[in-house]
């Protein structure tokens, strides 16, 4: 799902950094201050888990593969901005150690995978949890995947319109190639992961996690 370095121009990557940077600063002050010290071991463990599950490729019929994001749990347990900061850290490590994504596109990838996805999932959960907590958790994970994928595809489609030399595929092609695995496989697995992981963390009754 990550956009690699060189696929988007500064026309997109710089405004993305301009939006992401103040959000990083605000989220760090608000959610990673001294008051959050008790939650940090859980947040750190879930971030490490997200990093690991993002390296596991899930085969998709048709010869391609996809992977989970895994930070929806953080958004539901704490706040979407916590998920945003943690996913940004995961993306930074992936860019430095794996060559996945990249430094120039870090802001854009963080906004798509770390903010748009978890925020959409969090809103769905808030809306539906009064009807059924289990369904709301599953749908939060599913919607988060679709929102993140749509954001990445939209950014690449916009790049194609602005300057096709950076990304030669039109939006329709990218959208079809990204959304089919996302709707059919990645969203379902992310939904199940969100539901089971959150249920497990809540049952464990860990310090720093609200019951």
């Amino acid at each position: 799902m990550h956009i690699p370095d060189g696929f988007v121009s500064p026309q997109i990557s710089l405004p993305a950094y301009a939006v992401a940077a103040p959000l990083w600063a605000w989220a760090a002050r608000r959610h990673f201050g001294r008051a959050a010290a008790e939650s940090l071991p859980v947040i750190g463990s879930l971030t490490a888990l997200a990093f690991v599950i993002q390296t596991i490729m899930i085969p998709v019929p048709g010869g391609t593969s996809t992977h989970l994001v895994g930070v929806m749990v953080l958004a539901l347990l704490f706040h979407p901005l916590v998920a945003f900061v943690c996913e940004s850290l995961v993306l930074l490590v992936q860019a430095l150690f794996f060559g996945a994504g990249g430094i120039t596109v870090l802001g854009l990838n963080a906004l798509a995978m770390g903010l748009a996805g978890p925020l959409a999932g969090w809103l769905v959960w808030r809306l539906l949890r009064r009807f059924s907590e289990k369904v709301a958790l599953f749908l939060a994970g599913w919607v988060a995947t679709q929102a993140a994928t749509l954001s990445v595809a939209g950014a690449l489609g916009l790049q194609h319109r602005l300057d096709a030399s950076y990304f030669p595929m039109p939006l329709a092609v990218t959208l079809a190639a990204m959304m089919v695995p996302s709707l059919t496989v990645a969203g379902l697995v992310e939904g199940l992961y969100t539901f089971f992981a959150l249920s497990l963390v809540r049952k464990a009754n860990l310090r720093g996690v609200a019951a």
Binding site: L40, G44, Q94
Partner: peptide, 15 residues
């Protein structure tokens, strides 16, 4: 493992 170590180190340093 190196990636995990970096993430662990960041949170350990904060704690």
């Amino acid at each position: 493992l190196a990636g995990l170590a970096v993430i662990g180190a960041v949170f350990a340093a904060l704690i």
